[in-house]
Write a protein that binds this DNA or RNA. Sequence first.
DNA 1: GCCAAAGTGTAGCCTATACTACACTTCATG
DNA 2: CATGAAGTGTAGTATAGGCTACACTTTGGC
Lengths: 160, 160
Amino acid sequence: MDDKTILSPGRAGPPAAPAPDLPAEPTQALRFGKTRTAQSTALLEDYAELIADLLATGGEARPTDIARRLGVSHATAIKTITRLKREGLATARPYRGVFLTEAGESLAARVKLRHRLVVDLLLAVGVPGEAAEQDAEGIEHYVSDATLTAFSAFLKIRRR
Amino acid sequence: MDDKTILSPGRAGPPAAPAPDLPAEPTQALRFGKTRTAQSTALLEDYAELIADLLATGGEARPTDIARRLGVSHATAIKTITRLKREGLATARPYRGVFLTEAGESLAARVKLRHRLVVDLLLAVGVPGEAAEQDAEGIEHYVSDATLTAFSAFLKIRRR
DNA sequence: GCCAAAGTGTAGCCTATACTACACTTCATG
DNA sequence: CATGAAGTGTAGTATAGGCTACACTTTGGC
């Protein structure tokens, strides 16, 4: 990955080399490219948010807890935690639990806010509660800043 | 993949084994699991939709065209087409272009409709055009039937 | 203070999604 | 009708994300 494109702050230019053979139809191609890129950050975002949550509630975030909450094996969780460390989002020492760096915490905060906003919007347009929560889990990773802003504005008007 | 969970019709039970160690917190775990499963079908859906589009407009869908539109190398496109065939969604013979099976066409139709609905909803809540198109590309793959229904209802009311 | 259970970490394997590099068809054009 | 360009297919490689199996560390209960 290596790009700082995780939720607005500190974003950089285009993430990867734009594939060798794409002269025509750049619009749709770019669109799909971005969508794919988003996928690689989605998991990291979920982990950061969950770790922040565990840290806030229980005081500690253990690999097994994370694995359980996410429905994956602990081995998978540990691997992703390793990636989190590599990306500078978390710290962890053997048998000592996981913690977030500054970057990790701010990512978690942004992700949490975004999640709320998405769920609230879904509810506002009439999506039933459980579906809203469920779908938001997937949707939130693909919502741009522009869309987020629009959601926020829509909710503000609605609320009056 | 092997599951028929691609957009409502003909869905089956739970897709994979539910991971060995997940006794507690099943709600959130299930949620994440579903989200992950959705990812593997997302690409197939995009391909089916695009192939249908190419077939409808140009009359033929060639791997290179598909690759260009999606912004990937032709090799990648061919590999995914192979998977499409394996899943019974497409047919293709060497140097002869790609075609959709019945299942493939109906998938494409459902995906197209869903895409429209998502874009329309985003526009309806005030998301600017380009962002709506861009974000819908990612969002659409995570929108459940319940949410789709709600979107549709919301738009109907709005429109009056 | 020992020891088993719980948690942690590592290794090895799998699939999906990409890529580049190379080889083979097709087909248009001279 | 030969030939080269465009398109197609295959092989090999990499990374992300998942799994199981096995080994090691911590820690709680006796």
